[in-house]
Amino acid sequence: MAQFDVKINGKKHSVDVDPETPLLWVLRDNFKLVGTKYGCGIAQCGACTVHFNGSAVRSCQVPISAVEDNEITTIEGLSENGDHPVQKAWLEHDVPQCGYCQAGQIMAATALLKNNPSPSDSEIEEVMNGNICRCGTYNRIKAAIKSASQTV
């Protein structure tokens, strides 16, 4: 066990855990930021995607000891009022079915658009291929990303 001081969504948090504890479980169990989801634990499904200095990472693979003073953003911190253009596009296209994977999808999509404001279909497919949706909302995810790309 060790003390870690981290900054999540611009706020400082302190936690005393095993240094190997994945960021995913610290977010959920310790900080009660439950928007970041557990799906596989092995970086295969993308449900736990967060931003690490603005880049999309799988939080199940980031030990809390590696966070240090890097900026972490979760779905809860993506926007003040849930009005990030990607979130708005998700609502406009009514993307979710069960909704469980969608926070991870949105975090992957926002990181994509930050690097590439107008991605082609194949660029979207490439980046979003790491996020599984068992309900099969892929076409709406793509449509929402394309809508958002015009406003980001």
Partner: peptide
């Protein structure tokens, strides 16, 4: 008439909705 998913806003903002989110 098409009506949006009543939980959509909570879903896209990461609010606790699922069993696994119970604490």
């Amino acid at each position: 008439t098409s009506r949006k998913n009543v939980d959509a806003k909570k879903i896209v903002t990461g609010k606790p909705l699922y069993g696994l989110d119970s604490y």
